[in-house]
Design a binder for these strands. Structure first.
Lengths: 256, 256
DNA sequence: CGTCGACTTGACTAAAATCAAACCCGGTGG
DNA sequence: CCACCGGGTTTGATTTTAGTCAAGTCGACG
């Protein structure tokens, strides 16, 4: 910050340890020495305005991203011109790995609000990972976790009842919010009804009706994008397709 | 090649080069020396009968798999007891990476027919990849390609018209068959209508009707599991939702 | 205070699920 | 050789569900 040292620890702290990706990388045991290597990745921070496009379909694989503030969506446009939302990316969640397979992005990433994003050049990341075993393990794990999110999406989309998809979406979003240290049962949706619909393979009216129904049933409270989960158990029941039943046959712990 | 070397190239040839995974690994330039390293992974071959389970939900990450003969499906059971098919895996296609993120499998893999499968211990694979840069690149790429298949699945499931999902499924299957060196327009489905339905988020009757409709329209020929694609262009049109239109409005390059 | 965009709600239509019955085909055994 | 199964598949009739079209309502913002 003051001395002309090209890469110092202070800068590293700012660039990685403080970053929300930190929570993703560190737990599995990356030590200080490894961090010194990681620094070579020199992530860059960028501010974006709502609606700004971070990368476009067809862009060559350049970097992967983590928002430190704000959320993103990734969307793909079908040949017929319909827009599918492939994912929502909350602060601290990695995205952009979709280009690793083919070398170019399969979708475009758009800021859902004003945002600040951390950009990690993928090639450097891979190069460093090749030299530091613990980082390689982490990189593989992170790619796997990213695939897990896609599987979750498939799980939602394969439900045939719109109400299940909607309930599952809300539940899943809550879980992810919890994971990044935010209240899981009281939050502001970063996306519109239309975007939720395009994520769930529905039309926006159906999503709206689904929300209203959950509201009527006392499961959630909704006003615009403000959502409060009143009865998490009932929400899970709705997600499992047990509409009328209050008690899904699924029991977790001791009945206490 | 003639000496009693415990791990010789001849064996390697049998275990990898001849393997259908070979097509996946080699093109990007893994040279002979790298192959010598790869050999340390010592894949094991296993014969399975139709219906046999290769791994189950919750099993710890042990290996990834490639069928040399026969096909597999991966399925997940929802809390409500419904079975979702997450993927079909043709000979030569890698599967089992779903455990990389969490350390345990999220689904179970079942043989759709009598099969022979090649088992690659993942940890050894990662370890070898860490030592051979070109293999590390390949491993990352393969994981990325595996994620691409999930994206394709999402693309299909997000379609709201059953006819689109079905047409897209057939088209995609054809493409994958072509990739493994089989005719893309005349094949035997390795899975039942019910399994297709559970992959597409539909019921089996809807899939059956979809096939019949494509047959009536002269797009395909179906008899049981035997499928012949008569009009690939019309199939793609159907996949894009242009039911009646013969020419999808999809134009790529200069309008000529 | 008015306007615009996002959201909700309602009435109607189209599509897929459900329920139920046949059908086809490969295999078995008489 | 043919009758008879039985699973997987097709097809039909009906019900349920989500999509479509069209008003409204809400709320933020100028």
């Amino acid at each position: 910050m003051s001395e002309p040292i090209p890469l110092d620890l202070a800068r590293l702290r700012r660039s990685c340890v403080e970053c929300s990706l930190h929570a993703l990388c560190m737990p599995a045991g990356v030590d200080a020495q490894d961090l010194a290597h990681l620094e070579r990745v020199v992530p860059r921070r960028r501010p974006l305005a709502r609606g700004d496009v971070l990368f476009r379909t067809g862009d060559p694989l350049g970097a992967v991203y983590v928002a430190s503030e704000g959320s993103f969506k990734t969307v793909a446009v079908t040949p017929a011109g319909e827009e599918h939302v492939l994912g929502f990316h909350l602060p601290g969640e990695l995205f952009g790995l979709d280009a690793v397979g083919s070398g170019q992005h399969r979708c475009e990433a758009v800021a859902l609000s004003d945002a600040r994003v951390c950009e990690l050049p993928f090639n450097q990341l891979a190069q460093v990972a090749a030299q530091v075993p613990s980082l390689q393990r982490q990189l593989l794990r992170i790619m796997g976790q990213s695939a897990d999110l896609d599987h979750d999406h498939v799980d939602v989309l394969a439900r045939r009842q719109a109400s299940e998809r909607i309930a599952l979406f809300l539940h899943g979003l809550g879980e992810r919010l919890r994971r990044i240290g935010r209240p899981a049962d009281d939050f502001q949706l970063p996306m519109s009804r239309d975007e939720i619909a395009r994520y769930l393979g529905l039309v926006l009216e159906t999503v709206s009706r689904g929300f209203s129904r959950l509201h009527e049933d006392g499961v959630i409270e909704v006003r615009g994008r403000r959502v409060r989960i009143l009865d998490a158990r009932a929400l899970q029941a709705a997600a499992s397709g047990c509409e009328g039943d209050d008690l899904p046959p699924q029991r977790r712990r001791s009945p206490g």
